[in-house]
Design a protein around this nucleic acid. Sequence first.
DNA 1: TAATTTTTGCGTCTCAGTATCAAAAGTTTT
DNA 2: AAAACTTTTGATACTGAGACGCAAAAATTA
Lengths: 157, 157
Amino acid sequence: MARINRAAAKEKFLRFLEQKNLRMTSQRMAIIDTVFSTDQHFTAEQMLDWARERDQAVSRATVYRTLPLLTESGLVHEMDFGKDYKYYDPNYADSPNHNHIICQDCERIVEFESDKIEKLQGEISQSLGFSLKAQQLRITASCDELKRLGACKNKAS
Amino acid sequence: MARINRAAAKEKFLRFLEQKNLRMTSQRMAIIDTVFSTDQHFTAEQMLDWARERDQAVSRATVYRTLPLLTESGLVHEMDFGKDYKYYDPNYADSPNHNHIICQDCERIVEFESDKIEKLQGEISQSLGFSLKAQQLRITASCDELKRLGACKNKAS
DNA sequence: TAATTTTTGCGTCTCAGTATCAAAAGTTTT
DNA sequence: AAAACTTTTGATACTGAGACGCAAAAATTA
Ligand SMILES: [Mn+2]
Ligand SMILES: [Mn+2]
Ligand SMILES: [Zn+2]
Ligand SMILES: [Zn+2]
């Protein structure tokens, strides 16, 4: 589940902008540089902070405008992890078939791939009249395995 | 995936209230009557509308206060279906092991149970250091099977 | 350089949900 | 049953993520 490398990401984004008659600007550059220097799942506000460390001239509005462009171009995916804000995942361009398990106590997110579950997913979807395209699977659980080791910062501890 | 019957639900809620030194009021009664007359997944705003049809004297505030009580008592479950508002599920008391598949185009939600996927879920969770309790699984897909039949009201059609 | 198009940043708005608080309703004590 | 106390209610204000409108700035084209 490694992210796409920064040069390739820039390349792809440039082609996307060109094709939509949009311009590469210093702010957009700062944002995609920041996005593709992490493989963590991040929020818009986090991205704003990080991008500003790199380039002061990045506004909240531009971040909120650029993330949908990155999404549309396929470089990141919008993720819903059950919080009331969106997450973005920079790891999809490179591994489009991974899924996530989320701890509902802390916010630990772990990626995984499983042929078996992917197959079952497809079978279930189909049997219920859903198509396969763009499917995604999320498991919500508790990491008290990790809690016992002191790794899970459970809020209600 | 049938919901618990209304009388049993009221009974359970009464015991819950008693045990927490809370009172059964006409508003709370109207709300749980409404909740357990549907087996649909609903939002707080929907519940407000429906409960008001039954009893004018139900305010938004009371709905937003009662739903967490019903959740805490185990009669409903808070659900996140990827929208920016919560859903509530009245079907958990009776079938606590069901999962959901959601169409990302329309908002169709279909419940399903699968021993196979449940087993895999447990295996994956465990192998990644997550515990089994309170796990839940959500599949996001597109129902273009149904779309072809004109059943899916896809927004971007 | 001038005209045109795109982008930016600020401020305002929306919307679900929470917090506040005084009035109302229910309970317990005298 | 009146007084004292507790819980609940509803109106209103507030919050926080994100969308939107607009005038200024930047980039492109003429
Ligand atoms: Mn991921
Ligand atoms: Mn359900
Ligand atoms: Zn955890
Ligand atoms: Zn659909």
